[in-house]
Design a protein around this nucleic acid. Sequence first.
DNA 1: CCTACCGATCGGTAGG
DNA 2: CCTACCGATCGGTAGG
Lengths: 226, 226
Amino acid sequence: MPAATPTSDPPESVPRSRGRPRKTAHERDDGNRRQELLRVAARLFRSQGFDATSTRDIAAAAGMRSGSPFYHFESKEALLTAVMQEGMERALRRQADAMAQAGLDAQRRHQTLTARECLRVLVRNHFDVLVGPESDFIPVMLYEWRSLSPSERSAVKALKDRYETVWVPVLDALHASGELSGDARLARLLIFGALNWTAQWYQPNERASLDALTDAALQLFLKDKP
Amino acid sequence: MPAATPTSDPPESVPRSRGRPRKTAHERDDGNRRQELLRVAARLFRSQGFDATSTRDIAAAAGMRSGSPFYHFESKEALLTAVMQEGMERALRRQADAMAQAGLDAQRRHQTLTARECLRVLVRNHFDVLVGPESDFIPVMLYEWRSLSPSERSAVKALKDRYETVWVPVLDALHASGELSGDARLARLLIFGALNWTAQWYQPNERASLDALTDAALQLFLKDKP
DNA sequence: CCTACCGATCGGTAGG
DNA sequence: CCTACCGATCGGTAGG
């Protein structure tokens, strides 16, 4: 039974929002126009910043006229929020897939994943999400927080927390085995910082591959097992 | 003898810039108005971002009318550049002072600083510069790169490079002694990432002190001396 | 440093 | 999704 809401729906379904009604992602087959807007917005927000990108820039990059993005999104801010949510949902899916795949590989070798191997999978996937192909969404989320309203902010933060929660037991296990030293919470924050900062300097044509970067990170953070 | 400049000063000192002549930092005793503008601009740029801060916001915060900041700075961009340069110059001074002081302390104990102790001094000072009192300037530099023109960018980058250069021999020594593992360049980039990211989450009322944070960082990055 | 102002741009909307 | 448009805001300037 759904929770009782103080105001129930109006009798004949009067649209409540301002202006024209807007489609949701799954309404009609041309949701690809919406996807296209998300893609170009993510790219522009990343390269120029949210405030420095006009909705006209976005429309032009998607081959539309200046007013048309507002047919798909209520506001520029809603578009930003959608970019962040889309990015986090993809990241969550990829993280789950990577962990599941690594688990299966281990099983086929009749082994269990060590905490160190788990961390390697998480770090490698994080780099993919952050600086790999189609990686504009997550940097936008990391660097454009300020432009969200409090409620949008907490919606995105919930997804981000889910993403980071996966790391906690892994880091705890490494802490317990002595492979990770120091305060556990501070270590986690510092590690995420080291990883997230790569979005600032890593270029696709960087001499170091993402595998090499993963190696460097694990070597930096982890001690030999005592 | 000063270097010969292709165009020497005009005979009777005609101002070359547009509009009213602007004072430099040392011209007259009310350079404190300029300093005040830098201070409030740094604070607003940090909390709202460069693009989301209007020159009217800055003027109001400094107790001026909307047009007055342009008496002190040629443009909003020039003000941003000045914030970053001022911040880097202070950081460089504080870094040099901290290292010198630590060297003197060691000398008084008839010892030399170990590489590990040097790193501790650098990290601790970096946290001070980044999230300590009057720490708005450096986060602005770290997060508002995009709004600079190429030439302004390289001017700031030169200062940033000078700051980071001090760390290189220290990290190299730790690498040589086996206290720091993995590719040296990548380790340095990851370490700066971990430190710089604290500007995103550290609050002055944070439970961890900057000393505790320094401990956590050194424990995370460094191995025991083999 | 203030007053008064300009031209440009921006997010967003009505109506089709 | 386009056309045509509005009100607000912004960086910056002339003149004192």
